[in-house]
């Protein structure tokens, strides 16, 4: 298969034109074709959550999404979460303060999930956070600190 297709993607508020094979995933489009490597490839089969991005505000696994499927939709990745002036998103700041990561590889996916988890209204208790963050694996074992960070950011968002 060598045919290429032209895809228009809106990522973090910027427009991108790509000439890629139709089988290219959103994850590989971001990482290999656009140099946006903040979104991580942990399993490439929808099992670990490291590639979580937002498509039209919903959490989506970029490894199970073809780039072409995201055409015309608004994509947010970890690179687009902080303010233009570099001010961290409340979830990012909470992750740093609570030491909610070690190796950092699952972290962008955790943070993207956490932002959505709070927005979805599923950060009401520690148990609820654990459940709604369970799709993002962390082998370093930062889970209790991730819960603390999500709780902190959720409380800041509510206040």
């Amino acid at each position: 298969m060598t045919s290429r297709t032209s895809i228009h993607l809106t990522i973090n508020g910027h427009d991108h034109e790509l000439e890629v094979e139709p089988r290219v995933t959103l994850l590989d489009a971001l990482r290999d074709h656009l140099g946006l490597t903040g979104t991580k490839k942990g399993c490439d089969q929808g099992q670990c959550g490291a590639c979580t991005v937002h498509v039209d505000g919903q959490r989506v696994l970029a490894c199970l999404t073809l780039a072409a499927q995201a055409q015309g939709r608004s994509i947010t990745t970890i690179e687009g979460l902080a303010e233009q002036d570099g001010t961290l998103h409340a979830v990012q700041a909470a992750f740093l303060e609570q030491d909610a990561f070690q190796c950092g590889y699952c972290t962008p996916g955790q943070i993207m999930s956490a932002v959505a988890c709070i927005r979805e209204g599923h950060a009401g208790s520690d148990d609820e956070i654990r459940e709604y963050m369970a799709g993002n694996l962390c082998r370093c074992g930062a889970y209790p600190h991730i819960v603390a960070a999500v709780r902190q950011a959720a409380m800041e968002a509510a206040s």
Binding site: T37, L81, F95, I111
Partner: peptide, 20 residues
Amino acid sequence: SRVDGPAKITGAAKYAVEQQ
């Protein structure tokens, strides 16, 4: 707090096979 933290939470940290 870990000094490499900001790079990791913003996606700026480039891991080995992410070199372009």
